[in-house]
Design a protein around this nucleic acid. Sequence first.
DNA 1: AATATTTGTGTAAACGTTTCCTTAGCCGGA
DNA 2: TCCGGCTAAGGAAACGTTTACACAAATATT
Lengths: 367, 367
Amino acid sequence: MPSTVSKSRKSVTIKDVANKAGTSIATVSYVFSNAERYLRPALRERVLKAAAEIGYVKNAAASSIKGKRRGILAVVVAQFGNTFFTRMCVEIVSIARQEGYVVTLCNSDEDPAQERIILERLVAQRIDGCILSPALSLESNTALLQRHHIPYVILERSFPASATRHNFVGHDNFQSGYLATRHLLAAGHRRIAFVGWDSPIPNVCERVDGYRAALREYGLTDKHETIVNGELSEAAGWRMAAQLTGSACTAIVLGHHDIAKGALLYLQHQGMRWPGDLSLVVIGTPEWAGVLSPRLTCIERPEHQMAVAAASLLLENISNPNKQPIQRMFTSTVIEGDSVGKSETHDQRRQSLRSRTAVSQGKASLR
Amino acid sequence: MPSTVSKSRKSVTIKDVANKAGTSIATVSYVFSNAERYLRPALRERVLKAAAEIGYVKNAAASSIKGKRRGILAVVVAQFGNTFFTRMCVEIVSIARQEGYVVTLCNSDEDPAQERIILERLVAQRIDGCILSPALSLESNTALLQRHHIPYVILERSFPASATRHNFVGHDNFQSGYLATRHLLAAGHRRIAFVGWDSPIPNVCERVDGYRAALREYGLTDKHETIVNGELSEAAGWRMAAQLTGSACTAIVLGHHDIAKGALLYLQHQGMRWPGDLSLVVIGTPEWAGVLSPRLTCIERPEHQMAVAAASLLLENISNPNKQPIQRMFTSTVIEGDSVGKSETHDQRRQSLRSRTAVSQGKASLR
DNA sequence: AATATTTGTGTAAACGTTTCCTTAGCCGGA
DNA sequence: TCCGGCTAAGGAAACGTTTACACAAATATT
């Protein structure tokens, strides 16, 4: 009976409840939004009953215009489909809900123009806080948030210049690259390729730096580096893997899981086996890593911890807006698969363990 | 300089712009929200300039209390991490943004209580519309939305009793089960197992019904059915696969990708190969299906089309609230992998092609 | 030239809340 | 009996918009 639905277009307000309960609107408001205020239990009951009967639900928009709290947080990421972000989003949403917030999830799709539009829309909504994994232009967008006094946390993508001026939660890309490479070096590999991608964000470079640092520790120089780059796609992964065949490399660090997928398809297509023909480590934890016949060795970023950190940092900043910005950097760990084999080892250099640890800690405690 | 930030707590309003531009607040409002209203170009310019200078952004909450449109849509799913839903969410968000909406993504995590809380919060926000993939209790939640005149579309999970009373977009689970099974039957398999899961939602049963219908078409009876169920998890998938070893089955329909993963891990663990030892078809398109050494044959649901359909249906209902509810049912297609091998065929029954098509269409045009 | 029409701008009343402040009623102490 | 001090509840002024309406000025019609 759609006629019933359209009978009354207007939604039921605090005033309707007041009429029904025979009190003033102030009293109703106190019942629903001021738990401290003492009211005769009987009165409170009466209001609640009246509200339930006519199906009253407080209009959050109207509350927020007078009160300060909006009840909305936002998470803006550049690649929503990326499982790394998807998983963190799920966590953040669930934490936020426990605090009574609704979360708006937005996807800028790596497009700074979209990101700008999204942020303006969020500002228009007067959200209470924002977790932002910027596509590119950090400064102009954080400036927008600051001007409107919206607390925010930058997630995962740092832009070094401004590090300490923003709240930041991320993982140490340098350490990831370092860890992956070291793992292969420790298995005896000396010709290791790094498959990266072209990107204006510094994550890739940091991973490459980590890769280099690990090589250096093992006494290897520029001449031993093999770095290929392409766009961030499966197709490019395929091409880059193809580029690598014929090279002297015995191992590959796959810098990103999307690229890794394409590269693996190519290797399979060529009938190559791992770790037999090639040892592999992937940075990230694609769902398929554990399903592959010889399982892939992964560098796992602490997604859960990062999500918790980002959410709590944001919530703290909402309750105390004058808090100094802080930066929290997390480190990755190796998830052993079966894709790394021993190579014709030159020397094991056990002593380098010490210096590795030093490097790792140096970066990890950036805060 | 955090002191600058906290200098003025209040955000800039239409009034500030009016002062700055030397006009009335009405004029400013017209500039920002009533494109039809004619204003002297010079005046309009002046207002825009003033607004830009002091960084004015319209307060959407305040607009919505007087105006009708809120600018927020919501998508509520029961399994946000499920790639099927994740992908559709991404699409919906992007379509909605083109229409000027911000989308709130919510995850009920299969918990009806959570879902209720979420929906109440959304009603409080007075969202303009909602796409809902219900955890369980359809009726009470749609009743809530109806009472508050919030247009909605049910996504993917249908509850037959009430079919035509709601807007609905989903895929034909019966057809998916049928298609998967037929594909194996056509390859000559006659002992086919179905790995399902326990769930109060009818999706699984429909898939099983499709499985049965396909068997019947090939003249197979109850005695040829092998159906195992368990909870919806990788671990359960592992266990169910274990249950199946020793059975006479030469093929398996994996009813859900999460379960499929566990089952595959078990098969790998046992050193079984596909399609050699066992032919496999999975309902759904897990990312890893194409990465497995012999690629998995999948039943693909038209995620993109479904997302588009759900979003448009919602938008139509927002602009015309008295529209009659409609139901749109989509069908799946087979994505050929290499996991299905020919079996010791009895008879190929080419003539059954005709009746299959009939069944498929019978369900597909539920609308 | 007087009136009618159009055109551009501003006034002010909503919208559904929150919350400061007042008031009414009551009690106890002087 | 009067007054001060409570307590519980309501009146009314915000909050930042939108928009119906009034109005003044400019133009068009008689």
